[in-house]
Design a protein around this nucleic acid. Structure first.
Length: 310
DNA sequence: AACATGACCAACCGCGGCAGT
DNA sequence: CACTGCCGCGGTTGGTCATGT
């Protein structure tokens, strides 16, 4: 039983939870009050030493979790609303099990809550609709068995055939322009990416926002997500624009993000080169995730508007 | 009424990243 | 540069409650 202090077995317990005298299990109202008052008074952080300072017989991890998931004033209570569910689905489709990132885009909801809601509701819902909740693609690749699946009244996920037929030009192409030193924003439709490909032309340039490593353009880069236009060299000219697909075929954006997140991107790992794009360097190897969380490219509103084009 | 099963979700655990030294 | 400790994340567990038999 997990809530009893287990003195047997498990050698590799984390230090904070293996200490004698540390309480575990459900929190009492008294403990909640002590923790809540202390954090409101002293602020968040220094969780490791907080229990001692606050006079709680808990480990720091437990205190942090309790505050973050339950006691924080900003935590929203109650059922997940339809629009929240809709947003969770869209974000999960793009980000996968990045619960913290998803929660960061849904005010008042915690990563734990969204994770639980996903595991107990949404994943089953998608399965019942013939959609694989892991990748949002049909469980059965047979076109006859994978019609368009209505997830709810607000959103339709289009089942992707095994070999999608050519699509006509779509008006939802999104282009980006440099809005400031560290942010791009959508501008007008420039060109349908597939028309470039269908003509058999070599893509002008791979999209610098994904391939930029200080040595772009890299026309041989296999992760062509979009094409730079109106740019002739590695420069930082204002007004250059980028076509970022049209979000309409084969989940391009989603698979692209997934590829980055799964570390499948070819070496050298894409990072912003300060000279090329003047965007804050991502120090980790999850650049897109960092960009999203830092708002470097996809700030909250931009991400939302992009998702709404799906 | 008693028991079995399933759903829900708070809380725990291990791990990786990162800042500080 | 290497080491250490803390923090935060995602996966998992198991207690509680609701529903079914």
């Amino acid at each position: 039983m997990r809530f009893l202090s287990s003195t047997s077995g498990s050698v590799n317990k984390t230090p904070c939870c293996s200490k004698v005298g540390i309480k575990r299990g459900p929190w009492t109202p008294e403990e909640d009050e002590v923790l809540s008052n202390y954090v409101k008074r002293e602020g968040e952080g220094r969780w490791r030493t907080l229990p001692k300072r606050a006079g709680l017989q808990r480990c720091g991890k437990s205190c942090r979790l309790r505050w973050m998931n339950y006691l924080r004033p900003s935590v929203k209570r109650g059922h997940i609303a339809p629009d929240e569910e809709d947003l969770i689905l869209r974000l999960h489709r793009l980000l996968g099990n990045r619960w913290s990132l998803i929660a960061g885009r849904i005010p008042g909801r915690t990563d734990n809550e969204i994770k639980n809601y996903w595991n107990t509701h949404l994943s089953k819902k998608l399965i019942s609709q013939g959609i694989d909740p892991r990748n949002h693609k049909p469980l059965n690749p047979s076109p006859a068995a994978s019609p368009i699946g209505a997830v709810n009244n607000n959103i339709n996920f289009v089942a992707v055939p095994a070999q999608p037929p050519p699509l006509p030009p779509h008006p939802n192409a999104l282009t980006l322009e440099k809005a400031s030193a560290n942010q791009y924003q959508p501008i007008s439709i420039v060109q349908d990416v597939r028309s470039v490909m269908d003509d058999g032309n070599q893509p002008p340039l791979s999209l610098p926002v994904v391939a930029g490593n200080g040595n772009w353009p890299q026309s041989s880069n296999p992760m062509v997500m979009g094409y730079q236009v109106n740019a002739t060299s590695q420069d930082n000219n204002a007004g250059q624009s980028y076509l970022v697909d049209n979000f309409n075929n084969e989940d391009t954006l989603s698979s692209f993000l997934a590829t980055l997140m799964n570390d499948n991107f070819p070496s050298p790992y894409p990072r912003w080169s300060g000279g090329a794009a003047n965007v804050p360097l991502a120090s980790t190897i999850s650049p897109t995730v960092d960009f999203i969380s830092q708002g470097a490219i996809w700030d909250a509103d931009l991400m939302k508007s992009a998702l709404e084009t799906l």
